[in-house]
Design a protein around this nucleic acid. Structure first.
Lengths: 190, 190
DNA sequence: GTACGATCTTAACTTAAGTCAATCATTGGC
DNA sequence: GCCAATGATTGACTTAAGTTAAGATCGTAC
């Protein structure tokens, strides 16, 4: 299980036996059931995650409504960077929307890794670069596309998500309510 | 002028004389006139910038229309991370919307700094953390607020931008056309 | 001061999403 | 198999932004 994470790291740098051992003993893998919230908006993030199996949803709660910003599937880091790095209350929540296996990297482990093995400074930067690119992609999508165009793009580029994720979550991800997504789909059938 | 950048770095780490000298001789400051495009969508980013004076606009061109994602004012890094780090065509453009003084960090300089002074690895990560937080803030704004609410928030939190930036740019930043921003403002007067 | 261009506002009309409520479909538990 | 709960669709109506086009306002060069 944790091998996925090690493999992921090895895509960027060669790890020594010592480093691999350290990862294996300091980063546990947790089974998280569907619908469990792993970070609640307003709480301080004490850990971040790497998805080995399953799917995590990032969402904001606004006036009692949930608005989805992103879905993280296999082999992605799930982290509330601001909350984690500055130990401030998180502005969003994370919820597993499938039964998931997550590697859990807590605050102490993260900083010990950075301290003990300077190589992780590079990995941390690379992770963050990836995340930044994802964020910029989300922004570009929100700014340049209509909800209908966002749906078409998602259908093109990640058709698996359309199968995997209930429509009411997809709707808020596309920036509309479920009724509107239903209408968009109807419009497109013609 | 370049002192602004050095000062900015010193907020995070102590720099040696050698490092400061190196920065001074390898990072030039360029005067850029209003309306000049410093990175064109589709080109590969060869450099990134630090704003010493002025204002840079990040925008996408969609069907001939410009959609603004962000304004960078004094003491902020302006970078197309994906294009710069992966040397891919940029998905957006940068334009100075005021006469600006920009520190210019080119590809070679950036990597030489990282190589020569490991400390910059930490600075690069910190810069990226900042940028990531900015991105997440933009996403949160786009997802959780209506155009009218975004206008109110901007008026509250950065009233200077409302003075500094022409309304037709503010409009696309808020996600509406200029006519709609005009109507929003009218609605709010009552 | 005038004239021009750029910016901002206004109006009439269109389009699409939000809202509310009812109904239909699917699924899991028993 | 049946029921309840959850999720998806549909309809009628409201609301706000887009579109197009016409004017008002402002600033600047001459």
């Amino acid at each position: 299980m944790i091998e996925n994470l090690i493999q992921y790291f090895q895509n960027y740098v060669q790890l020594t036996e010592e480093e691999i051992d350290y990862i294996k003993q300091s980063i546990p893998v947790k089974e998280v059931p569907k619908n469990e919230v792993i970070l609640r908006q307003g709480d301080v993030s004490k850990e971040f995650f790497f998805t080995i199996k399953g799917c995590v949803r990032l969402y904001y709660i606004v006036n009692g409504e949930e608005k989805t910003a992103f879905f993280y599937c296999e082999n992605e880091f799930v982290s509330s960077y601001e909350s984690f790095t500055k130990q401030l209350p998180a502005k969003h929540s994370f919820e597993c929307i499938e039964n998931s296996d997550l590697a859990v990297i807590n605050f102490e482990t993260a900083y010990k890794l950075l301290e003990k093995f300077p190589k992780f400074e590079f990995l941390a930067r690379t992770m963050m670069e990836q995340e930044l690119i994802v964020c910029q992609e989300i922004i570009a999508n929100l700014i340049t596309l209509s909800p209908e165009q966002r749906y078409l793009k998602l259908r093109d580029q990640q058709p698996d998500l359309l199968q995997r994720i209930p429509q009411y979550h997809l709707a808020t991800f596309l920036g509309v309510r479920p009724e509107s997504l239903s209408r968009i789909r109807k419009r497109l059938i013609k």
